[in-house]
Design a protein around this nucleic acid. Structure first.
Length: 427
RNA sequence: GCCGCCCUAGCUCAGCCCGGUAGAGCACCCGGCUGUUAACCGGGGGGUCAUGGGUUCAAAUCCCAUGGGCGGCGCCA
């Protein structure tokens, strides 16, 4: 007889024989009667062991080994009993301890630091697995969407020379005696790729050496980035809307069990997404009592305010040049503004950033100078504007921020198995 | 980078203001228990009070420094 999965047990009939294997989620022993909550990757079921009905081994020989997280395999039969959680249990006839367990450190009441220090064990928690499954589903959906829409996957390097978002936030790496950096974004490399493949994307980690102590920053995060030849700012917003909708809809359709386990009520977002200009957003923020000037970027409070005043995802468009990186295309209607936008998720905040890139050689050179960047570091990037340059646009989506929005977890580090933050690289 | 807070038993915390040689709950160990759901009942062991220095007759407690971390801001995906 092959091993069944825990989730299958609930569909079996009274008296059916099953073999199971998994881990002890919790155990309660009282004299000659023991209860185990047995966990596998599909769920938890109660296993009942009665001293006189356990055929092997002797009850006394295993009862002291039924500790939390011990691994075991067992055979028994299905019983429908209202006293069991969810009305179903396995009455155990034989059992083998595969791996004993020491005193398991994770239990109710432990603190944040302790859980982070024991992340390698915390992964076993059901709710955490639900988040990881949703994350997996989101990536699957993104890959599907890119393929359906004619995008090519391009993997980009993690070791880089030049900054993309600003020099202060670069990690240094000793590269055979030479200082190089970990990439902050694959955008510049994807821009190179569009001249062959036209529509490209990547899903890979980006690194930021910012000591950001917030619930929405990691030093290493997974970045979904896309770049499209001949695309305008308008085009790229449409792509973003379609991609985000596709991902979210697929998660809602196919990860309902996980969302329920997390107690998360999540509605598919209405379309079309809202579109407001930077100027409108500033006005909204000021009207609701947070003072900011035209030309300022949105602070945390302003971002929260915007995120809480929308009933669906919203683009904030046309940020001033002063708030953006060097490569953003100026808006022809107002050169102080850029053809760029951030996408805000309701209740969450910024999850993507994108826009049209400068494709004109002279303008790019001028901008590098204005931003005090060394053109030598961007030689190859500038080169792209010398050989058949075309208008193009792209965006970056923070996978963890997207997952945080969908799952409603309280901190971005709970969207990734082993979070990297300014003060944590262990485990 | 800035501001605030925390570090006492394996874990969660009380004790600190007003200095006088350390306490609870849970976990663990032993015993009991055939319907538990974070099982329960009885008994037991367990701490150089983060580290270093200072003040004092006396420091977990007051002061300084260092380390580790948490929360918020800034920055951004």
């Amino acid at each position: 007889m092959s091993f069944a999965r825990v989730e299958e047990v609930f569909k079996l009939n009274e008296g059916e024989r099953v073999r199971l294997r998994g881990w002890v989620y919790n155990a309660r022993v009282q004299g000659g009667l023991a209860f185990i909550d047995l966990r596998d990757s599909t769920g938890i079921v109660q296993v009942t062991i009665k001293k006189h009905e356990l055929k092997n081994p002797p009850f006394e020989s295993i009862v002291n080994e039924l500790k939390r997280e011990a691994s075991l395999s067992l055979e028994g039969y299905v019983r429908h009993d209202p006293r069991a959680p969810n009305g179903v249990e396995i009455l155990c006839e034989s059992l083998e301890i595969i791996g004993k367990s020491e005193e398991y450190p994770i239990r109710k009441g432990v603190g944040t630091k302790f859980l982070l220090d024991h992340r390698h064990l915390y992964l076993r928690r059901q709710k955490f697995q639900a988040v990881l499954k949703i994350r997996e589903k989101a990536v699957e959906a993104a890959e599907e969407w890119f393929r359906m829409n004619g995008f090519h996957l391009v993997h980009c390097p993690s070791f880089v020379i030049a900054a993309c978002e600003g020099g202060a936030t670069l990690f240094n790496v000793d590269y055979f005696g030479k200082v190089v950096h970990l990439t902050q974004s694959s955008q510049l490399y994807l821009e190179a790729a569009i001249f062959g493949l036209e529509k490209v994307y990547t899903i890979q980690p980006s690194f930021r050496a910012e000591k950001s102590k917030t619930k929405k920053h990691l030093t290493e995060f997974w970045h979904i980035e896309a770049e499209v030849a001949f695309a305008t700012h308008e085009d790229i917003m449409n792509y973003e809307e379609d991609l985000v909708s596709y991902i979210v809809n697929k998660v809602v359709d196919e990860s309902q069990k996980e969302l329920e386990l997390l107690g998360r009520q999540f509605e598919k977002p209405k379309r079309p997404f809202l579109r407001l200009t930077y100027a409108q957003a500033v006005e909204l923020v000021n009207k609701k009592g947070i003072k900011m000037n035209f030309g300022d970027d949105f602070g945390t409070d302003a971002e929260k305010l915007i995120a809480n005043s929308i009933d669906r995802p919203a683009f904030v468009m046309f940020f001033p040049v002063s708030t953006r990186a060097f490569y953003h295309m100026p808006n022809p209607e107002d050169p102080n503004l850029t053809l760029s936008s951030d996408l805000y998720a309701p209740g969450e905040g910024e999850i993507t950033s994108g826009g049209q890139r400068i494709h004109d050689l002279d303008l790019l050179l001028r901008r590098l100078k204005e931003y005090n960047l060394n053109p030598e570091d961007y030689k190859w990037y500038i080169d792209l504007r010398r050989y058949g340059s075309v208008p193009h646009a792209g965006f970056g989506l923070g996978l963890e921020r997207l997952v945080k929005w969908i799952t409603g977890v309280n901190h971005i580090r709970n969207t990734v198995p082993f979070p990297r933050t300014p003060f944590r690289v262990y485990p």
